[in-house]
């Protein structure tokens, strides 16, 4: 027991980070499950993070109401972004959504309420490990149930053949917007948890590299099922830490391992767990 608590106190930051990254990977997975490569999730993270931190620090709101209000704001932003980009596909959608993320970051740099480039410091550590992991468990459970529902079947149908899906009475626009809003809400919520488990936030936390990490986690883990992004996040967060002994070669080996996973397990790590679909 003592060893366990010692382990936790030494690694709690990393443990929290895995949970947050898993939520972020799930946020990008939701839109992928509906066939959309949306790469603006760092923008939704920033919206909820700044909104909830400001509500707690300036307006003295309690933690959960502040986070939920910020999450609602991200979902609305998701709908507002989703509407004009409905007609875009593939790389065009990706570029438009990256643009959105950059716009949010530039606002954060230039507004005084967000503390500009220096960000906001002195954030209380309110997102504990139990809160992060119970949130993750709930998100995994709900998304897993979603994939088995009528809406989840519609998501998969749109992802695999939008024309055929519409021919069966599925309204692609409605489901894509729903996927956008859900993805934005999860990204935002994770952004708030991340903010409340570090001491300060600044615009550099929400740069393009952030969404690349999310996408890599989802793809390496496997986008065929809800377990994939979680597994991918664990690997992508732990790998750089366990490779510390390689010193300067760390990033090279890290990149090579990911390359091998993609080449030899194109369906992602999850295909090792779930062999049903592997062949």
């Amino acid at each position: 027991m003592h060893a366990l608590t010692a382990f936790y106190s030494a690694h709690s930051a990393l443990i929290n980070q895995i949970g947050v990254n898993a939520l972020l990977a799930l946020s990008i997975w939701v839109t992928l499950a509906c066939g959309q490569l949306s790469l603006g999730n760092m923008g939704f993270m920033a919206i909820t993070a700044y909104a909830s931190v400001l509500l707690v620090l300036r307006a003295h709101w309690p933690f959960f109401p502040a986070v939920l209000a910020g999450t609602g704001l991200a979902a609305i932003a998701g709908l507002l972004l989703g509407w004009p980009v409905l007609r875009l596909r593939g790389v065009f959608l990706a570029i438009a959504t990256i643009g959105f993320g950059e716009i949010v970051r530039i606002f954060a740099v230039n507004l005084s309420v967000t503390g500009g480039a220096e960000g906001i410091a002195g954030i209380p550590q309110l997102a504990s490990t139990p809160i992060i992991y119970s949130s993750l468990a709930l998100a995994v459970f709900l998304l897993w149930r979603l994939t088995r529902s009528r809406a989840g079947r519609a998501f998969a149908a749109i992802a695999q053949d939008e024309v055929a899906a519409a021919g069966l009475g599925i309204d692609p626009a409605a489901y894509k917007l729903a996927a956008f809003a859900i993805g934005a809400a999860i990204a935002g919520y994770a952004g708030a948890l991340s903010a409340f488990s570090s001491f300060f936030i600044s615009p550099t936390d929400y740069s393009f590299g952030r969404v690349v990490d999310m996408l890599a986690s989802a793809v390496v883990g496997g986008i065929g099922s809800v377990g994939g992004p979680v597994l991918g996040s664990i690997l992508l967060t732990l790998l750089p830490e366990t490779l510390r002994f390689l010193q300067n070669y760390r990033d090279v080996i890290n990149g090579l391992i990911l390359l091998f996973v993609i080449v030899f397990l194109p369906q992602g790590l999850w295909s090792l767990v779930d062999r049903r679909r592997a062949s």
């Binding site: 009528r150 079947r153 519609a154 998969a156 149908a157 053949d161 055929a164």
Partner: peptide, 17 residues
């Protein structure tokens, strides 16, 4: 224009949308 990654059964279930 079947949904290639779904089983035959799942394709028909989507038809019941």
């Amino acid at each position: 224009r079947l949904f290639p990654q779904m089983s035959a059964l799942e394709n028909v279930v989507v038809g019941m949308h």
